[in-house]
Simulated scan of single mutants.
Amino acid sequence: MKTMWWRDMRSLLIVPMFKCLVAICLVISLLVFVESLYMNIVVIYVKLCKRKPEKIYKWEAMQEDLELGNQNFPMVLVQIPMYNEREVFQLSIGAACRLIWPLDRLIVQVLDDSTDPTIMEMVSIECGKWATKGINIKCERRDNRNGYKAGALKQGMRHSYVKTCTYIAIFDADFQPEPDYLERTVPFLIHNPELALVQARWKFVNAKKCLMTRMQEMSLNYHFTAEQESGSTRHAFFGFNGTAGVWRLAAMEEAGGWKDRTTVEDMDLAVRVGLHGWKFVFVNDVSVLPILLDYN
């Protein structure tokens, strides 16, 4: 009797349910395949037709005004969130301070969540060194690590001097922007008021070190080319990578700023900004140097 009951339930309920789930998986797989195929077609189109962002959006190099001097350059805040980054903090701070931009129109904000007193002292000394060279650099610390990176970025936005800035560039502690990074990205935001974000690609300094770094490079290169460059060309949504991007402060504020309710604060902010109608652009020719994990 029990055996017959089980057979009836299996044939009437369990088997149809699993068939339905298999059908749903097949449909989703087909949609993912079609999307991937479409994105790769767009990538081929971009390469063949040389559809660079400069052809889609207006871009003009910044020029010093004879009457206004540097005042026609917008104020830019560079944020560097870090946590016990003994090996790379000098590289990231140094790269940010070497950015080509009028010194009186640039603020470098080091958001140091380090808990190691030695590293904290080293970061303070490094910031002080650049301050003596005329760089407007701030080393900000919290008395807790609530929200982790998102919490640090959120706290960093509360300082009064941030309100004087129009654009905000963000670099993780293991990222090193090229000196002309701001010169090549900020003009997109200046001349295209509908843009909220300019995202640069990553060019890995240790990609050839071992098999793991090569595999990471291949995966991330696909992400940049097939997903972000394709989305940018189609005026479609793509996510912020959490680093190597320049935001329009007004767009961030309209969307509610950083939220420390999640550890994927970059995608969370990008989605909210996108829902407000803002557009993003990916600039493949501008690269920032990160370090891949090799576990050695």
Rank of each mutant, 00 (worst) to 15 (best):
I14L: 13
V15P: 00
V15C: 02
K19L: 14
L26D: 12
I28F: 13
V43H: 07
R51K: 12
R51M: 13
I56Y: 01
K58R: 11
K58N: 11
L68D: 08
Q71T: 11
Q71S: 15
N72Y: 01
P74N: 10
V76D: 03
I80W: 03
I93Y: 06
I93M: 09
I93W: 03
G94Q: 12
R98P: 04
W101Q: 06
W101N: 07
W101A: 06
I107M: 14
V108N: 05
T115K: 14
T118Y: 14
T118I: 15
T118W: 13
I119K: 08
I119W: 12
M120Y: 02
M122D: 15
E126N: 07
E126W: 05
E140I: 11
Y148M: 10
K149H: 00
G151W: 02
G156I: 00
G156M: 00
S160I: 09
Y167P: 07
A169H: 04
F171N: 09
F171M: 09
Y181P: 08
V186S: 09
F188Q: 04
Q199A: 04
R201H: 04
K203S: 12
N206M: 03
C210P: 00
M212S: 10
T213E: 02
E217L: 06
F224V: 02
S232W: 03
F237G: 07
F240I: 08
G245L: 13
W247A: 07
L249R: 15
T263S: 12
V264G: 02
V264L: 11
E265M: 07
F280D: 00
V286S: 11
V288Q: 05
L289N: 11
